[in-house]
Amino acid sequence: MAAESKIDPMHQFQIDALSGGALDGTPFIFTNSALWMLIVLGAILLFMWGGMKRELVPGRWQAAVEMLTGFASGLAIGNIGPEGKKYVPWIFTVFTFILFSNFMGMMPFGIFEKAHPFTVTSQFSVTGVLAIISFSIVLIVGFWKHGFHFFSLFVPHGTPALLLPLIVPIEMISFLVRPFSLALRLFVAMIAGHILVDVFGYFIVNGINAGTPMGYFVSAISFVFIAGVNALELLVCAIQAYVFALLTSLYINDAVHLH
């Protein structure tokens, strides 16, 4: 490590082919990103499997799983109404995938070489797909249910006719910007937190390597700071998953009910 103690906080977002070969832009190449997606899937499956005892009086694990499913269906049904039941699987998928990916990226597996966790949700190629699927559901449901009447979404209730030329473009832009804001919010929150943690981690290492009193002082300060940032990051992990699922259910509600 001492040889490459140059600060390079972006290295953790590097995607490599696990076969050791070069990336060639084909779909089936197995990368560290793909591996960690599968690890996230495995973690979700393991967690859910523990809650499938389906006992009348739930144990701790079953209660935790029921809390997760109840949270997802509560989001969908609470925001969309009784029709929201149809969208529970997607809200659940979005919420658990983002939640587990975020948490998995925060796991301290990096103390073992080669086991450094890869945060899937720090790639906008991933968050973008999630956002596009959510946005596509909104469009499909909206046009399916309301046809061209769906465009009335851009005309808020009680808008004076005089203001329509102004309001409609604004509403339209705010609608079209939704998938981007959805994808970028998650991506930026994850990448920023990880860069912060990484940079201060380097400060600790380099401060100790410097061996001067000032170096030790910087290391100590950085250590205290990084502990706080890690706690904050765990909070952000949960909040970002919640925000993504919440906004998805709100957008679907718009499409189902117009407003």
Partner: peptide, 20 residues
């Protein structure tokens, strides 16, 4: 990487959506 990312993401999301 986008093709590989999308392929594996589709696999994982499909597994979560349909399986779970």
């Amino acid at each position: 990487v986008y093709q590989s990312q999308w392929f594996w993401l589709a696999v994982v999301l499909a597994a979560i959506y349909f399986g779970i």
